[in-house]
Design a protein around this nucleic acid. Sequence first.
DNA 1: CTAGCTTCCTGATAGC
DNA 2: TGCTATCAGGAAGCTA
Length: 278
Amino acid sequence: MPELPEVETVRRVLEPQLAGRVIEGVDVLNGQVVAHPAPEAFASVLVGRKIAGMGRRGKYLAVALDDGSELVVHLRMTGQLLVAPPDAPVEKHTHLVLRLSDGAELRYLDTRRFGRFWLFAPGEPDEVSGRCKLGPEPDDAVLTVAYLKAQAGRKRKPIKELLHDQSVVAGIGNIYSDEILFDARVNPLKPCCTLDDEEWERLARSIPRIIAWGIEEDVMTPEEYLRGQGKEYRNAEHLRAYGREGEPCSRCGAPLQRTKVGSRSSYFCPECQKLTGV
DNA sequence: CTAGCTTCCTGATAGC
DNA sequence: TGCTATCAGGAAGCTA
């Protein structure tokens, strides 16, 4: 389940393999994953374009094309982008194939088919992908205590849900919200309007730090990415809270607990992240 | 305005 | 063994 650090890893691995290649053919195997424009137009407009580079905004990837058009991808839960030789067997759940000028193929696989592609003509504003509604990147300097407090307002919803709100901060999902709250020693269920100044300070510091740490820990070579078939982002072993129910807290040794926030599994330390002042 | 629910999907796993 | 139920979760869309 890619969040910002994993999406950034995909970008770093794929960009050097794609930049400079020309898209010679497009096979839309499942039109469901093409959100804009219609699949036929999507394919015909892409053919002949040269890939200039690859960017990222939140969890969105953006392939920049030579004529100024832009191919935007959101992997959602199970989307994977793979570069494969054309003779490699086409795996189950392959929905889109871009045939490239060096003979390789960029393939999109997605078991749950939640992921989407959007293609924007040069100068065409992106008003449909949801990208324009994103809040600042986690490393953006505007992400101050004052900003977070203003976003929280009088909301009583759990702080974890505020971190999930892509219009507040871009790129945080269920895993990294647990990691950030663990690092900041804030209980995931704590209502937004009840955090004290120290908690806001720690949270504002933890957001950029934990996301940057996630990207560093995620570093992998193209060979490793290929071996894992784009499925393994190595995002489990370095985590300190997520998925570690019953394991000792790395700070105090107390067994970590699991709870539900909304409908999401949440892992936290009952000693370091006490629910007080509510 | 916000909170809360449903929808989209498949596959892994649990329980009977 | 084979069935059903549950869970995993990003984000949009809906209702109250």
